[in-house]
Design a protein around this nucleic acid. Structure first.
Lengths: 174, 174
DNA sequence: CTCCAGTAATTGACGTGTCAGCTATACGAT
DNA sequence: ATCGTATAGCTGACACGTCAATTACTGGAG
C-alpha cells in the first residue's frame, strides 16, 4: 500500500465530485442556451445589462462595472466591444478623467434586458430552486459558503453591496 | 401585488442561486488554473488523456471518445487538433471504417497524464472534499442528482460505464 | 452496379475568456 | 515644470466552445 496516497480522494468522493462538476456545468449550459434562445442575450450580456440598469442614470465607469461584475478589465473591454456593435450599450468619454470611459445603457439594451428578466428568473426557479427541497436549497447555500471559504484568495472578488436595510424594497434580480 | 410574479424566485432564493453559481464557477476556475500551472494541461486535455489511458491499447475511435467524454464531435475535433500539435496524441486512419479516425496516446501525453494525476486529485481533495463536512459532501451528491433529474433531456449524456463488480479494483481517477 | 440516405470526422466563422503588452492620462515628488 | 510611476482602458494572440456546412466513406434499395 503506497502511503503517498493518503491524501487522494476515495472512489466515492471522486464520484461525487464528478457528478457535482458535471451537473453544475450542465445546468449552467442549459440556462445559457435558454436565455440565448428566449432573448438573444448571453449570460455575460445579461450581467452587464443588469449592472447598468441598476446604476444611477443607467451609466457607469468601465472599471466600476468590471468591479461590480468581478470581471477582468480586458474581458469587459472585449465584451463591451461586442455589445456596442449590437447596439446594446454605448461608450462615451468621461469628462472627469479623460482616460476613463463611461458605459451607458442604449435603448435596445434596456429593452432586451426588460424582456429577458422574467423568463430568466423563471428558468432559475424552474431549473434550480424548484428542483430542490427547501432543505437542499439551504444545504446548497451552505455548501457554496464552505467551498468559497476554502478557496484561495482571488483577485476578482465580486463587489459586495452594502446590504439594504429592510431586504425587500429593491427590484428582484439575479 | 402582481400575481404574475408567483413563479419568480424570492430574494433569498436568488441570493442562494447567485452564491452557488459564482462559487462553482470560481472553484472550476481555480482547479483549472492549478492544473494548468502544475502540469501544463487544461481540464479538457486531462479528460481526453484520462479516457485514452483507460482505453484498451490506449487508443480509441474518435466518436467513441466523444461519447465517453460527453462532448460534441466538433468540439473534440478542434481539441484533438490542438493536442496533436503539442504531441500529446496521434491521429491515425482506422483499418475498419475508412471514414473513421483512431486516436492514440502519444508518449508525451502518457507522461503528462502520469505527472498530472496525483496533483490534480490532491487539488480536488483539498478544494472540494476537504472543504465540506461528510454530511455536506453527501448533500452535494444529492443536490447534483436532484438537479440533474430536473434538467431537460440532453443530447450529450455522459457515457455510463457498466459499474464494475467490487468497486475497488480500478485505478482511481477523476 | 448505381443511387442515395446516413454516418465519421473535419472545417470555418464567430462568441467568449485569459494573458501580456500598449497607449494615454493622472498625479505626487522633486 | 518635469520626471516617474500608477491607473484606465484597449488590443492582439491564442485557447476553448457552438453551430452550420463540408468531405469522404458506408451500406442498403432498386
Amino acid at each position: 500500500m503506497p502511503g503517498s496516497r493518503r491524501r487522494l480522494p476515495t472512489r466515492d468522493e471522486l464520484r461525487t465530485w464528478r457528478d457535482f462538476l458535471e451537473t453544475t456545468e450542465a445546468l449552467r449550459s442549459v440556462l445559457a442556451t435558454r436565455l440565448q434562445s428566449d432573448t438573444g442575450l448571453s449570460p455575460g450580456d445579461y450581467g452587464v445589462l443588469l449592472a447598468l440598469s441598476e446604476a444611477p442614470g443607467t451609466r457607469m465607469r468601465s472599471s466600476e462595472l468590471a468591479a461590480t461584475l468581478g470581471w477582468e478589465r480586458s474581458r469587459l473591454s472585449h465584451h463591451l466591444g461586442r455589445m456596442e456593435r449590437r447596439g446594446l450599450i454605448r461608450r462615451e468619454k468621461t469628462p472627469a478623467d479623460s482616460r476613463g470611459a463611461e458605459i451607458s445603457l442604449a435603448a435596445a439594451g434596456a429593452e432586451a434586458f426588460q424582456a429577458a428578466t422574467v423568463p430568466h428568473l423563471r428558468a432559475v426557479r424552474e431549473l434550480f430552486v424548484d428542483a430542490l427541497t427547501p432543505e437542499q436549497l439551504t444545504a446548497a447555500g451552505e455548501i457554496a459558503a464552505a467551498l468559497r471559504e476554502n478557496l484561495p484568495a482571488q483577485k476578482n472578488q465580486r463587489a459586495q453591496k452594502p446590504a439594504s436595510s429592510t431586504a425587500s424594497e429593491e427590484p428582484i434580480h439575479s
